[in-house]
Amino acid sequence: DKHFVVALYDYTAMNDRDLQMLKGEKLQVLKGTGDWWLARSLVTGREGYVPSNFVARVE
């Protein structure tokens, strides 16, 4: 069951495990537990961690 989110804010990666994203960017959540979610950008195809409070679910 795939679940998708949209970035509510720009996020600048703090290290090489984070995923940089721009407000409005759509992401697929690969692992969504805790404060940091592993996601893949549908724009760039890159994977990394994003802060869960920076994204909102897309139905």
Rank of each mutant, 00 (worst) to 15 (best):
D1W: 06
D1H: 08
D1N: 11
D1P: 00
D1S: 09
D1K: 10
K2C: 08
K2D: 08
K2S: 12
H3K: 11
H3Y: 12
H3S: 11
H3I: 11
H3A: 09
F4K: 04
F4Y: 10
F4C: 08
V5W: 05
V6T: 13
V6K: 12
A7Q: 03
A7N: 02
A7L: 03
A7P: 01
A7S: 07
L8D: 06
L8F: 03
L8H: 03
Y9G: 10
Y9E: 14
Y9L: 09
Y9P: 01
Y9H: 15
Y9D: 14
D10M: 00
D10S: 09
D10H: 07
D10R: 04
Y11C: 04
Y11M: 06
Y11W: 09
Y11H: 10
T12V: 12
T12L: 12
T12C: 11
T12E: 15
A13W: 02
A13Q: 08
A13G: 12
A13V: 06
M14P: 12
M14K: 15
N15I: 05
N15W: 08
D16N: 12
D16K: 13
D16T: 11
D16Y: 07
R17C: 10
R17H: 11
R17G: 14
R17W: 14
D18K: 07
D18Q: 15
D18M: 10
D18L: 03
L19H: 04
L19A: 02
Q20K: 13
Q20I: 05
Q20F: 07
Q20L: 06
Q20Y: 09
Q20N: 15
Q20V: 08
M21N: 00
M21H: 03
M21Q: 00
M21D: 00
L22V: 14
L22R: 15
L22Y: 11
L22Q: 10
K23I: 04
K23V: 02
K23D: 06
K23P: 04
G24R: 02
G24A: 03
G24Y: 02
G24E: 02
G24Q: 02
E25C: 01
E25I: 00
K26L: 08
K26W: 06
K26Y: 11
K26P: 08
L27T: 04
L27M: 08
L27Q: 03
L27Y: 07
Q28D: 05
Q28H: 07
Q28P: 00
V29F: 01
V29I: 14
V29P: 02
V29G: 04
V29W: 03
V29Q: 01
L30I: 10
K31T: 12
K31L: 10
K31N: 12
K31A: 10
K31Y: 05
G32D: 13
G32S: 15
G32I: 08
G32K: 14
G32P: 11
G32Q: 15
T33N: 14
G34Y: 03
G34P: 04
G34V: 02
G34E: 06
D35H: 09
D35Q: 13
D35L: 07
W36P: 05
W37V: 14
W37H: 07
W37T: 13
W37N: 03
L38R: 06
L38Q: 07
L38E: 03
A39C: 15
A39V: 15
A39E: 02
A39I: 10
R40E: 03
R40S: 00
R40A: 01
R40P: 00
R40Q: 05
R40C: 01
S41H: 08
S41C: 01
S41F: 00
S41W: 01
S41V: 05
S41D: 03
L42Q: 10
L42W: 05
V43F: 07
V43K: 14
V43T: 15
T44L: 02
T44A: 03
T44P: 02
G45T: 02
G45Y: 07
G45N: 08
G45E: 02
R46M: 13
R46T: 06
R46A: 11
R46I: 05
E47I: 09
E47H: 10
E47W: 02
E47Q: 12
G48P: 01
G48K: 02
G48S: 01
Y49E: 01
Y49H: 09
Y49K: 04
Y49D: 01
P51S: 02
P51R: 07
P51E: 01
P51F: 02
P51T: 00
P51Y: 05
S52R: 15
S52E: 07
S52Y: 08
N53M: 07
N53D: 13
F54C: 10
F54V: 09
F54E: 00
F54K: 12
F54Y: 14
V55P: 00
V55G: 03
V55L: 13
A56F: 05
A56G: 13
A56H: 10
A56P: 02
A56E: 15
R57A: 14
R57W: 07
R57C: 11
R57N: 14
V58E: 10
V58M: 11
V58W: 12
V58N: 07
E59T: 12
E59Y: 06
E59V: 05
E59M: 06
